[in-house]
Design a protein around this nucleic acid. Structure first.
Lengths: 152, 152
DNA sequence: TGTAAGTAATTGTATATGCAATAATACCAA
DNA sequence: TTGGTATTATTGCATATACAATTACTTACA
């Protein structure tokens, strides 16, 4: 590859790379939620897990990881941190001794309730920043990715 | 907040939360690039920095961080890792003794050249996965975020 | 029924990320 | 000029993230 070609490729990567874009977007958006949730000592990533667990009732790690496209080892440690803080508890599972399903504790539920108004604020800020077009397309992509995962 | 209300809020968060969406998208897309780049022992996050440095010639950390919405402390350590591998080098800066501008080494440049075809493959996979609508809108959002940063 | 293959979760290791505090330098204004 | 403020980068600390290897258990099949 000669210098000219290389420069052209660099330009293409710099201006078009989708990894750069989504990663930057993730940093920017995460920051908005983290700032809003900081008084509760809660992070956006942790709220994700609390909400999913609340919705599931009793959450099995593998199922939650497929839903969120999250590595099980990542979830394992995140859950452990939240368990130590008393937000989650592991529930005994008779049917499969390998499973370590978990659910919200009362404290976790209270925390989540306190987080709701702050989440709404962050959500609105982000919506304004991104605009409805991006928000709607992100929604479609999100559902598509979840289908893709469960279908495979 | 009563139980009904809380459940409705949980549903809203689970189905609409923009942080959940962009973070998941970031994980999915990053994985595609990381897998493609793995034979080069290079990660998407590192390629971002190499490309930006290559484009800038001599990159000043603060400037690069504003461009990518990256914390300076994050960049500091990422650069250090890449410096240890011989991909980047810090260049002396006479005008401001605080500055630690850096640039690609010859090895860094070679690595980046090797990464180009792999990047193209990952980019194409991702484009197919997301569709042109999302890709184009992400591009607009990206430029908008870069403007917002440089304007402030 | 007993073993081989598969599955669930954890642990070791490494990178990425950001906040708070700090150190060193630059700039500005009285 | 000097004293306070702003800027640049690094470091301590904590969390998030994923891959590879491992452990423990389950399932299938021969």
């Amino acid at each position: 590859m000669n210098t000219e070609e290389f420069k052209a490729n660099l330009d293409a990567i710099a201006t078009e790379c989708l990894a750069v874009r989504v990663r930057m977007l993730s940093r920017v958006v995460t920051k908005i939620y983290d700032e809003e949730l900081r008084p509760l000592h809660l992070k956006a990533s942790q709220m994700n897990i609390l909400v999913a667990a609340a919705k599931m009732g009793v959450a099995r790690p593998v199922a939650l990881c497929e839903l969120l496209h999250l590595d099980v080892s990542t979830l394992s440690r995140n859950v452990e941190r939240m368990r130590q803080r008393g937000w989650l508890e592991v529930v005994p599972e008779a049917e499969d001794a390998r499973a370590q399903p978990f659910r919200l504790t009362a404290e976790g539920r209270t925390l989540l309730q306190q987080a709701v108004p702050r989440w709404k604020e962050a959500q609105e800020k982000t919506r304004r920043m991104l605009g409805d077009g991006v928000v709607n397309l992100l929604g479609k992509t999100f559902k598509q990715l979840q289908r893709a995962k469960t279908a495979s």
